[in-house]
Design a protein around this nucleic acid. Structure first.
Lengths: 215, 215
DNA sequence: TTTCATCTTGACCATACGGTCAGGAAATGA
DNA sequence: TCATTTCCTGACCGTATGGTCAAGATGAAA
């Protein structure tokens, strides 16, 4: 029907192309690392000439920075649930659900993040020192309140958070290893459910989480 | 005393230099990734001219392969304890101890391994498919026996293993993040103890591990 | 229609990197 | 002492890569 090309507005063009480039970049950075990724590879995957990438993102580093920042936002957002919860069963449970879902839907993003941190966070160290530190302290207080209220065992909230991050992100970062151990096939729907439930069951029981009373 | 240089035997020289190169390579690969690492950087860290590296290791890839294989061996060896244990409390506990110790003492190795797997294991995929698969099946059987003997809750051993790997390696792979959240300082001895004990406490309680009876 | 800003891209450049090599030094063994 | 093997290394090379640029195409605004 509308096979005749209706001229795209400049604004749309920009949005569209930046989207294309960022998506391609995330994948390539995830699979090859910052050093191993090439602008040419990203350009090919995005279906654009290389020079065009440099029009939207002056340097490889600026493109990478943009990718990592976006991922960092998602990372933080996943924990909004945490605060609204009445107790650890709901809060921790929902957080695990959310992070497992991210690992499943956006493994590339998780890998880029892992890579960035493993390399001592060359581009987002300032974020770690400000935003992440604040964020972590807030969540630690929430957990501490649950402990004080007798809703779970007295465990240093710090190490519980690390455990939550580790167990959930593992399914993205080490997805290839898990796949190999699953006869080379990706986890099925049921397997993802099992994994999620296993993680939740072990951790919730492990911290002695007691269901909140009331409605 | 023996300040006059006694000529080094060829054999010693070879051993010594290969050691120097492998150690330097592990660090550089860990910090920069395969793509980001340069032979020049490794050479500088090892204190040798670049051409000398190529004398001992023909290509960058062969050097990298050697590094990864060595790490893989350590990885597997850490689980010998597992088999000898009479029950989950001892077995899982000792395994966590061992892997936490590795994360602490050889974080670079852990990072290289993580990086390799994240990039879909380009150089050791065959090892994953053979050795790792066998290894994993063996450990899963051990866990299953504990379950059948009523020594712990019925949990799919697969997901328990993933959890053990994830939680312990996290302290190496994300060590920089953890350090940042610790006022920029490395974990102290006591903090490492706390971390280790937290992990053990949560997981052992979480899987309902019951101390083995008898002596 | 005309003007202007934005977008597109093939061709090009400088650099850095993995890898080579030839010629010499040093240990080994007879 | 004299071959022979092993080790060492500065200089060099081809290629791949990040980045530039100038000239043109395309939509926006008047």
């Amino acid at each position: 029907m509308s096979s005749n090309a209706r001229p795209l507005s400049k604004k749309k063009i920009r949005q569209e192309n930046e989207r294309l480039i960022l998506d391609a970049a995330e994948k390539v950075f995830a699979e090859a690392g910052f050093g191993g990724a090439t602008m040419q590879l990203i350009a090919d995957l995005a279906g654009l000439p290389k020079a065009n990438l440099h029009y939207y993102f002056p340097t490889k580093e600026s493109l990478y920075r943009q990718v990592v920042q976006t991922i960092f936002q998602d990372w933080l957002k996943a924990a909004d649930i945490f605060d609204a919860a009445p107790g650890p069963v709901e809060g921790i449970g929902a957080y695990i659900d959310a992070k497992m879902e991210i690992s499943r839907r956006h493994p590339a993003g998780s890998k880029v993040w892992a890579s960035e941190v493993m390399h001592r966070a060359p581009v987002i160290q300032d974020y770690l020192e400000t935003t992440l530190v604040e964020w972590t302290e807030d969540r630690m207080q929430v957990i501490q309140r649950w402990i004080d209220a007798g809703q779970m065992d007295p465990i240093d909230p710090r190490y519980l958070l690390y455990m939550l991050w580790a167990t959930t992100q593992h399914y993205a970062d080490f997805g290839h290893q898990i796949e190999t151990l699953n006869d080379g096939k990706p986890l099925s729907n049921e397997q993802w459910e099992d994994a999620k439930n296993s993680v939740k069951a072990i951790i919730l029981k492990g911290v002695g989480a007691r269901p909140s009373k009331g409605t």
